[in-house]
Design a protein around this nucleic acid. Sequence first.
DNA 1: GTTGCGTTTATTTTT
DNA 2: TAAACGCAAC
Length: 721
Amino acid sequence: MPPDAASNTRHLIGLNPEQRAAVSHTEGPLLILAGAGTGKTKTIVHRIAHLIRVAEVHPARILAVTFTNRAADEMRERVQDYVGPEAKRVTLSTFHSLGVRILREHGHRLGLPKKFAIYATADQLGALKTACAEISIDDNRFDLKKIQFQISDWKNRRVSPEQAKRELSEEGDGTRADAYAVLAATAYPKYEEVLRACGAVDFDDLLLLPTQLLEQDEEARRALWKRWHYVMIDEYQDTNGVQLDMARLLSGSRRNLCVVGDDDQSIYGFRGAQVGNILEFERHFPGARVIRLEQNYRSTKRILAAANAVIAANTARHEKTLRTENSVGAPIEQVEHDSEIAEAESVAREITTRRLMHKLPFGSFAVLYRANAQSRVFEEVFRNRNIPYRLVGGTSFFERKEVSDAVAYFRAIAHPDDEIALRRIINYPTRGIGRTTVLKVVEFARAENIGFARALKEVTADVIGAAALRAIQQFLLLLEDGRKELHAAEAETALNRPKEGTTPLGRWALAFLEKTGIEQEVRSDPRNAKSADARADNLKDLAGTITRYERRVWDERFEPGANPDDEEWEPPTLSGALSRLALDDRPDEEEDDRVDQHRVTLMTLHSAKGLEFSDVFLVGLEDGILPHSRSIDAPNGAESLQEERRLLYVGITRARQRLTLSYCRQRKRAGGAIDCLPSRYLTDIPQDLLNIRGSNVELPPEESKQLRQNFFANMKAMLAE
DNA sequence: GTTGCGTTTATTTTT
DNA sequence: TAAACGCAAC
């Protein structure tokens, strides 16, 4: 707690004037334009403290919304450190968890079952496949992902199936309606039907349905207005149309809405984010106060000058110029290479020497690129040169095949109507229920006008044959037994807070997975020869995740500041574990994996948002890569190119001390080598900030001598350690 | 249901 | 170039 605990300005200490203004503005709409590295989180944390301690707002009346679990965790931690235990009563949640919470409480008013399943990408695709099959859209001839994308886009813009159809027919102005849009418009209503029949919602629904509920249902609206009086939203530049409406509805007539963001870092337009939300905030919320945070505490003057120059070329933005009291810093290196291999070799060499010359840990370096595929060369070269690295991105834990198969089993247990889950596992491991049998069951279900799950129970031998029937009955028995044992485990875990060691649900999960035979199946698949043990471990980890979930639920009940008799508290269930899994797919230990002292970080520019490194390499800065060729010839080219430029801006502003920009003259792609030109954005950086050179140019002799001395001194010191 | 071969295609992805 | 996918044959 700050020293002057009695004064009303205690939470303003250590802040600059703009940050102070943001903290002390408590009533009415507020837009905080927080440039990169300007102390955004600090400002939010102090503002929450100010609301609680000075404005005397009850912590439970405050709602703070983020996009990522990581951001939510960080904010929770910092608020609790600064304010103390009562800050636990603040609702701090991601958009999607907030949606789940609202739907759990009020979803029955929309006809949702109490325990609904949440479909992430793979399941969405499964549901869409089922929907398309019913209306004879051949999933071999058409790319369902495109249809899925279109439907998702509609849902994010709050276009209903009826509107989607109308929107298409109204496009009679000569513009040819996209063939996929037509298919999507046909599939859309069916897809929604399938979801509801499975008792499921997709990720978009987690935002869309609560918004609809708030709009239509006076009672639900009042309940939420009673609960939250102050709403804050982080990373507002990434919100989409639904989230804008959600923000409006949640803040209600009090209009105590504080949004924080940076339009210059809006890089998720391709996923439906609307920069317009942050650009038009004052129009959406008349009378809004706008505060700009432009004092940067992260980067050198040169780095900021480059960032400012790059972003200034964008139109349609809130004017901002970052400034800093940090030192001028080293010149920015701009390096040309012959090939991507030369580029990677050069980065490796630079890291090795800089580490020794400046005595830096590997963790202070990051290599940032546009697309994941670019990481490969770096991985190979780093491996050869024994540079430890950490690759961020790629397929996540829960996308791994064996894990999602196991999760499908859990889902089939927890949500008996979940057709998508059932169909995924019905013949995995192989148990003699092939494609034709499944199709016959689907046919039977349609004829009887019942769901797939019920059809499995009621189908007879004359429809599918005796052997298949026996197989199905065995399968159902497996699930039924699993369900019985689960109920016992749930009853047990609801009773007592688990002590050390295993937990009831965790034990159940392990035992049930054993019975499914997934592990055996994984081990016997020759394709898994090398990875069998790792995959088997993943299954164990999944059970571990459930154990940790169980403990966490109980911990939440008894942690300081919480009320143990809170009526809202619910004991752990498998269904609860699954929705948490769907919303937060980080395997537990790796929570803070984005920061690691001992390894160089390799990641995309997108993943780098929000992070900082003292030494940053931006690689592959070529036209066609950044901006990406798809952006160059996108239909909304101008918009798209501005987003690419923002990507470069995000990259530059990750660097604290040193920044290296590089590009290749040639690069292997689609078979042969193609010639590349430097990124068009590079010319916007003033030359006097840059030290332009080719790959193999030596440093000036003076500097070189000095550095060599450091090199040997540091090497000695490091060896001595 | 599995295997192997030919064909296709290659951004970013907080939840 | 390589990996991922679909399809046909076993």
